[in-house]
Design a protein around this nucleic acid. Structure first.
Lengths: 208, 208
DNA sequence: TCCGCCTCTAAGCGCTTGCTCACCCTCGTT
DNA sequence: AACGAGGGTGAGCAAGCGCTTAGAGGCGGA
């Protein structure tokens, strides 16, 4: 991870890798706008306006509106995959690692739900080759989760009749958090993460 | 249920309640287009073209493009709520009724996933008062599922620490089927329904 | 001081959008 | 045969879209 992604305090700064600063401001503005209204309903004038710039400024940093979406989607999917892999590479039991994966994955989808919403639901707005690139990243996320479940089954920790189907369900459950999560709601990202980790352990039949 | 929704054979005909026939053709075309490309990316010319009509014909039957979306969303949510309530009103144990609800709800989201995708993911494109009407229907779906889980807990069938959170998770899991389900995929709607019913019973800690 | 480079703006081009309007065609009824 | 009603069309309007271009302004190095 590059130093630009972290503040001196150690907390990680989202979009820290996007430079120069004007390009980052435009990208952050685009994330907000896409999350609120969807890609197609968002105008380049709206994005530029939120970033405090003229419409033409956008095209200095990005070739097209679709390139903006692709950059957002790429960075977001990289981050999501990194989260899952970090949990999978931990040294606990399969149950501990699965719970950890779900907890941190869900927390990310709740905390950064505007980003996640764009990343997860605006995939169809990408052009064919950009979409193919992103789909490949998702395949790897799927493989990472399936790996943990496979290991749990092999170790006798889990009891799962349909590993592929259960993997899809687990990821689907986590991803959909970004759709319904509301900052003003009753639950914090941590609480949702804990709840979902528990639910997923039940789904795989992990003895408590 | 009105007779217009059923063919003489007894199988139910989707959109049977929409008349006259030209209005139904337009609505079916709109569902396809909205599901494929999203509401905002779909043009009125595209909808009319799919229905084999001129762009102006749309405005004989619908005041605006948004009214089309509202009609689709309203009918779809009515159907979804009807499915859940039918299962909830059954006479088995709470576990049987919950499994039945999930099975039929998921089957609908898989079988009619183009409709479901529009109904579940294009909500934000509705105007404020139309959206409020639909949100109220969703609240009732939530209450129906929560009711079954409450009864299961009261009867000692389930062991659920967080009923509200688990209800959200169950509905979220089912709804998201419409996003990833693929007709060319390996699983039939029935198979996904059965898998998900099993997973949900595990989530609520129903003894098998 | 002057230059070249980069960022950003004002203006606007070509096109598409949701929607309208004047008119036509096809009916069942008289 | 004449009529009224209602579903349908071709053409097109005003507005808004993604994107381009000519040029202004600021800044570091010679």
């Amino acid at each position: 991870m590059s130093a630009a992604e972290e503040t001196p305090g150690g907390e990680d700064m989202p979009w820290g890798e996007v430079t120069p600063e004007a390009a980052r401001r435009l990208l952050v503005a685009a994330v907000e706008a896409f999350a609120e209204r969807g890609y197609h309903a968002t105008t380049t004038r709206d994005i530029a306006g939120r970033a405090g710039m003229s419409p033409a400024a956008l095209y200095i940093h990005y070739k097209t509106k679709e390139e903006l979406l692709h950059r957002i989607s790429r960075i977001g999917h990289d981050k999501a995959l990194e989260i899952l892999r970090a949990a999978a590479a931990g040294d606990g039991t399969a149950a501990e690692r699965l719970a950890d994966a779900v907890r941190s994955f869900v927390r990310w989808h709740a905390e950064r739900h505007t980003t996640a919403r764009v990343v997860q639901y605006e995939l169809d707005a990408l052009g064919p080759e950009h979409r193919a690139e992103i789909v490949e990243l998702r395949r790897r996320s799927d493989a990472t989760v399936r790996g943990i479940i496979d290991e749990g089954v092999a170790a006798g920790e889990f009891e799962v009749p349909d590993v592929a189907g259960t993997t899809v369900a687990v990821l689907s459950l986590c991803i959909d958090v970004s759709r319904w999560f509301n900052v003003q709601g009753r639950r914090s990202p941590d609480e949702v993460g804990a709840l979902y980790a528990d639910l997923v352990l039940r789904m795989v039949g992990a003895q408590k």
